[in-house]
Design a protein around this nucleic acid. Structure first.
Lengths: 304, 304
DNA sequence: CTGTTAGCGCTTTCAG
DNA sequence: CTGAAAGCGCTAACAG
């Protein structure tokens, strides 16, 4: 082919808006430059923040991201995992359910790069990026105790399954209380479904000796708590101090501004994405099965 | 191949966790069962609500969604469009920029199914799904006038480019004021960058004859307004009434609860997705170039 | 260095 | 009805 022929072809290519067929390339090269992300529940602020961070990292490297929302349903999760595998994604970041332990083990055996965020699965050695939950609870309790509270309640969402953040935050809460010489009382600690939070709260706060401070385990719980507080016209922090995990969009403009234990969600997402990309590029170059814990940040505002 | 051979193979297939290679299938069938979505700015509540609705519709039909955030940058938008075309997506939903008019025209010529959300481009005849913005502004003005206000200010974000919602909402505001016999004053109407909103607000509210009510054009504007109001300790609605477009997550728990013009974002996303899917299945079966306007809902709360 | 060719894994077509 | 073969558009390997 002559030089001028080539030039003409390139001209036509430009004019016709020709695009390389990446599907064909992917088939040949056995990589799609696409990763899959499966979040447990897209309604959490944390999920959206992590997703955004992952997308930012990936877009810089021209990697596509397909996001799926498992909606806290292991069956959906499995369906998405298999669909993404069938789509030949180069790697997977998930907020895993222990119900799919076998599937995850198989993925590991196949060598598909895999990273966990927010949750762990026992016996599945995957690099995992999540909050230091026990420490986060400790920070909360410590702050409240410093503010003079002894009767501290904790409330959070529950799923029937044992989910890492919930378990660890409650455990951390109990440990922290004990460390401060306070015996945690079970009727001050509630892990219930979102729809029952307000009911449990009403029970807890109308008990004989109600807590003077409340620790909300995540943002969805916080919304319910604030809703209840508004309904009952409870004065924060005078009648009840409030602290929560997850930095919601309105924490600095709410009245009162909300004292918050913020998760470094962007950082978690970034590092998870970087780890996955490294593993995709050269699997042998990265250690597997490490757990990366991120410290929470206490943002002192006016609700405590 | 004998029956038992087939059975054995299917057994092994199951055991090995074999997955059809959808990349190969896509190459052969010339469809990927994937659509692309490009939002102008992921930070808007509206964008995330639309995305979620699109994903819900698509997941039900086993269609994948790749979401891209153009970050209000036409160059990024173009890059994503071309990348998604190269990936052979079956269709595209975008919040378009008029800077890419030529590219969109080419896409139309190629016959790639395309749907617009939130914005229009002149001379590009694509099915478009968006709020009836003029009516939304009318609802806001009408409500405030009914509450006894005459001096009404409007503030919203601006981009240097003329973006459909901003233009239409401001036009609608002016028209509505006139219809109520009020001459809209330019110094009460501001379209500025997010970072300058608080400054403009301070100018507007400290003027000789400040407005008694304020209309915030979208959620990002609202956040700035609330931030300013908190800082200056302005009493809502006693000193200033406040209404805004976009139903933010905390509107019902804020103090005061926020009177809001809600966009039917889920409905917009759903219908956009359904239209795109119909067009993908049989392009000739759908009319092109229609503009579908959605009515806003006034949710009366306590900020007005 | 340029140009041809085989083959990625699937589906579709065609022959047996 | 079953089974073989061609070909989707690309890239990597190889031949000239």
């Amino acid at each position: 082919m002559g030089i001028d022929t080539r030039e003409k072809i390139e001209e036509v290519i430009e004019k016709l808006g020709y695009q390389t067929n990446l599907v064909a390339r992917s088939l040949k090269q056995k990589r799609t430059s696409t990763i899959g992300v499966i979040v447990a529940n897209i309604l959490h602020t944390f999920s959206t923040q992590v997703i955004r961070a992952i997308e930012d990292v990936c877009n810089e490297q021209n990697i596509n991201v397909i996001v799926c929302n498992a909606d806290d349903d292991p069956v959906k999760e499995k369906k998405y995992i298999n669909m993404l595998r069938a789509k030949q994604v180069d790697g997977l970041i998930t907020f895993p359910t222990d119900k799919n332990e076998k599937l995850y083990k198989q993925i590991l055996k196949e060598g598909l790069p895999l990273v966990f965020v927010d949750r762990l699965i026992k016996d599945v050695l995957v690099n995992s990026f999540l909050l230091d939950n026990e420490n986060a609870s400790y920070i909360a309790v410590n702050h409240l105790v410093e503010k003079g509270h002894q009767k501290i309640g904790m409330i959070t969402t529950s799923l029937l399954r044992s989910v890492t953040p919930r378990v660890e935050r409650i455990e951390g809460f109990k440990t922290a209380m004990k460390r401060h010489g306070i015996t945690p009382q079970d009727n001050y600690i509630k892990g219930v479904e979102v729809t029952h939070i307000q009911f449990e709260l009403s029970k807890m706060l109308s008990s004989e000796d109600p807590p003077t401070a409340l620790f909300a385990g995540n943002d969805l719980t916080l919304m319910e708590v604030l809703s209840y507080i508004k309904k009952k016209n409870i004065k924060i922090p005078d009648e009840l101090s409030l602290i929560n995990i997850d930095d919601v969009s309105f924490s600095h403009i709410y009245d009162p501004t909300l004292t918050t234990i913020a998760q470094p969600a962007s950082e978690i997402g970034q590092e998870a994405a970087n780890m996955l990309i490294k593993e995709i590029k050269d699997s042998s170059s990265v250690e597997k099965g490490n757990i990366y814990r991120f410290k929470a940040n206490l943002i002192k505002r006016s609700s405590t």
